[in-house]
């Protein structure tokens, strides 16, 4: 696991850059999927106490959508993509080509569409890692859950919790026309994988 407390500002910059390119890949994939132009804000790397993370999504009891997968290869770990319910609704409605209505109940087709979207976003995000660091990264089939923010976010919190009381994540905003959706990526490399990534990027010897 990452010892977040031990990261220096340069290493955080590297993570930001991976996040930046990963989110850029994800935006491109999203644009292709929607056949629309998608802009994004420069992603922000955030490090905070895991206790406070659910507040970013409106509180621990707020329903959120999470897509989780793990990856193997030269590096191992997991990625969790989280967005609030409204953002998920907006993305689903965009994909389905219908007017945006965040109160619409989600059908099974909507859910499988959003799982596929999560798959594409997380895989393209992860693609930055393999391209930049020239590492073999093989993602698993993703899994979807819609539940309380606290419960979904406990997954990366436990993974980070092995070494730290903090969590590192990347916040990105995608903008399409008048709509914007905020997406959070939690990339948790495994014990030794973090060093492998930094070495492959030439950050550490």
């Amino acid at each position: 696991m990452v010892d977040i407390d031990g990261l220096n500002s340069f290493e955080i910059d590297v993570l930001r850059e991976i996040g930046n390119i990963g989110a850029g890949n994800a935006a491109t994939a999203l644009a292709k999927m929607l056949s629309k132009k998608v802009n994004m804000h420069v992603p922000e790397v955030r490090i905070m106490d895991f206790k406070n993370v659910p507040d970013v999504l409106g509180g621990a009891e707020q329903p959120v959508m999470g897509v989780y997968l793990n990856f193997e290869g030269d590096v191992e770990g997991s990625v969790l993509l989280v967005m609030d319910e409204a953002s998920a609704h907006i993305l689903i409605d965009m994909m389905m080509g219908r007017p945006i209505d965040t109160n619409r109940p989600l059908s099974d087709i909507d859910l499988s569409a959003v799982q596929e979207l999560g798959n594409i976003l997380t895989s393209s995000y992860l693609g930055a890692l393999s391209t930049l660091a020239k590492l073999d990264v093989r993602p698993s089939i993703p899994c979807l859950a819609i539940d309380m923010a606290g419960a979904i976010l406990s997954v990366p919190a436990v993974e980070f919790g092995m070494t730290s009381d903090k969590v590192l994540f990347i916040e990105t905003e995608f903008i399409e026309g008048a709509d914007n959706v905020r997406v959070y990526f939690f990339l948790v490399p495994d014990v030794d994988s973090y060093d492998t990534i930094l070495k492959a990027l030439g950050v550490i010897q």
Partner: peptide, 19 residues
């Protein structure tokens, strides 16, 4: 003590998912 995500065909971090 729930398992929020269940991955198919993955042994890599089951230890974490079944925490």
């Amino acid at each position: 003590g729930a398992q929020m995500f269940a991955l198919k065909n993955s042994s890599a971090n089951n230890d974490i998912l079944n925490i």
